[in-house]
């Protein structure tokens, strides 16, 4: 249940925050919620799969963070802002 709360907080953050970096952090929160779920269920069953999964997820999160932050830097360089509202320039 904690995991669910964490996940939903993260999701909420992604959906409502304006600052790109914070949105990104919220995605990290969501990944952590998944981790927590995996670990909780792993203990529940005494099954190591959840641990390995969490391990992989951390690795993936690290990779994502590297590229994501690079992109944020690129955005900041070209726009001077990381505000999502101000990044919306393409018309629909």
């Amino acid at each position: 249940m904690l995991a669910a709360a964490l996940f939903c907080i993260g999701m909420l953050g992604v959906l409502v925050r304006r600052n790109a970096l914070v949105v990104f952090m919220c995605i990290e929160l969501m990944l952590n919620a998944a981790n927590l779920t995996f670990l909780a269920f792993a203990r529940d069953r005494g099954d190591m799969t959840g641990h390995i999964s969490a391990f992989f997820i951390i690795a993936v999160a690290a990779a994502e963070a590297a590229v994501g932050l690079a992109i944020v830097i690129a955005v900041f360089r070209s726009r001077g802002t990381v505000n999502i509202e101000e990044i919306q320039t393409m018309k629909h």
Binding site: V14, V23, I27, A34, I57, E64, I71
Partner: peptide
């Protein structure tokens, strides 16, 4: 534009991945 596109793609891609993972 490219950085904007990349950023959106990244955020939503990561979001989708997190959903799937959960």
């Amino acid at each position: 534009r490219p950085s904007e596109g990349a950023f959106k793609y990244f955020i939503l891609g990561a979001f989708a991945a997190a959903l799937m993972l959960y």
